[in-house]
Design a protein around this nucleic acid. Sequence first.
DNA 1: CCGAATCCTAAGCGATACTG
DNA 2: CAGTATCGCTTAGGATTCGG
Lengths: 131, 131
Amino acid sequence: MTNNFHMGTNYLLKVITGKWKVSIICALGLRDYRYLELLKYENDVNHTKISKKVLTEQLNQLEEDGIITKKSYGTIPPKVVYSLTTIGQELAKKLTNLNFLGEKLAQVNQANISFDINAQQVKNLHKEEQD
Amino acid sequence: MTNNFHMGTNYLLKVITGKWKVSIICALGLRDYRYLELLKYENDVNHTKISKKVLTEQLNQLEEDGIITKKSYGTIPPKVVYSLTTIGQELAKKLTNLNFLGEKLAQVNQANISFDINAQQVKNLHKEEQD
DNA sequence: CCGAATCCTAAGCGATACTG
DNA sequence: CAGTATCGCTTAGGATTCGG
């Protein structure tokens, strides 16, 4: 065992660092998404704005890093579907698995677990959506 | 189950995002460290320069986020020892657990898993150290 | 020995407008 | 529909210097 036992973790962290990447990976863990679908989903779930430029950037990086793949149907208007690679699916599971610890930590810290509004507000939003 | 099942993960990611945080957490997973010890360790293991300012910043943030604690002996010259909290230890385990997936991904991508030199060079370095 | 204060650069992110 | 191109703001990180 070397001192570099965390290099893989660091590499992985580098791959998933980016404001929306974890959210994207978790989303694609549930089902495939088209481009604008994903844009809407992210804006929706996180209650904050993601620009098309940034979404494109992060998708390209995730593809380059072997986490996701895109399939372009050559149609007009275009249709592009994003999905996880095999290793991407593994990653999605692990990330979801980290969720519990993250929530526990947030609770201990009494931290704001949402992007820009607090958990209670999120709950209220969901209540409103149900009404 | 809401759509926010990854918010804990995102929160956790926010806590551990920072160029040296994972490395710090993993280091403290092995044993406690003093300030300059940690500085030397990081520069040593990662073969790149971390400034005192950044180390202090990241340590403060990790402390604020409930991952580590510091103990100051009131001596002159000062002595300060950093260690993991209980939840920090849990985190260290999970991160170490991610290491395998990260290494696998790096291999698939034929990526440079070190900070600034490649894996083969790291191996050579270790060989030299043994000589 | 353990930082804090200052300055600087590079990168990340967002808004907006345009295109095949 | 699925992107590019351009711009400007904000933040992270590093070098250096000073202090208790």
